[in-house]
């Protein structure tokens, strides 16, 4: 009925967090560009921003795209099935008071499970990417 609303709420939250993280990372890079003698080295600051070379804003952008992409395509499916309309109240279940508890239950069960599953898959993705990147960097150092 409206299960995609929960991942959508998570996607909005992730978008906000991503913007904040991006600003912080840009600030760190700006400080690096105005580096003076006696301050922390560029390599140390870059290491502070990201442990493996993949920045957090990049990692969060993966989760963001996964969530927004899923939400967009699920919204199309809901429109196709007539569960979502493009005018208020947007959710057809809202028209009938008897349908509202069913909709809320579906959001709590299906919606939350979807959001948790996508986040877990993303966590796995980040783990694998970091592991691969570390191995790649180690190989690079060994060669040089």
């Amino acid at each position: 009925m409206a299960c995609f609303v929960v991942p959508m709420a998570e996607a909005i939250l992730v978008s906000v967090v991503k913007k904040v993280v991006e600003k912080k990372e840009q600030k760190v890079l700006f400080e690096d560009s105005t580096l003076t003698e006696g301050t922390v080295s560029f390599a140390e600051k870059e290491n502070k921003a990201s442990q493996t070379g993949i920045s957090w804003s990049q990692k969060l952008s993966w989760l963001n795209t996964l969530l927004w992409g899923g939400v967009f395509l699920l919204a199309i499916e809901h429109i196709w099935h007539g569960e979502v309309i493009l005018w208020p109240p947007f959710l057809t279940a809202m028209k009938n008071p008897n349908d509202i508890p069913i909709m809320l239950h579906e959001m709590a069960s299906f919606g939350t499970s979807m959001a948790v599953f996508v986040t877990l898959v993303w966590a796995g993705m980040v783990f694998v990417a970091e592991h691969k990147m570390k191995r790649f960097l180690c190989k690079g150092f060994n060669r040089s």
Partner: peptide, 14 residues
């Protein structure tokens, strides 16, 4: 890829 995988994971759970 991420757009399609996002929807696939959500429908898989559904």
């Amino acid at each position: 890829c991420l757009i399609y995988w996002g929807a696939t994971f959500m429908w898989f759970v559904d």
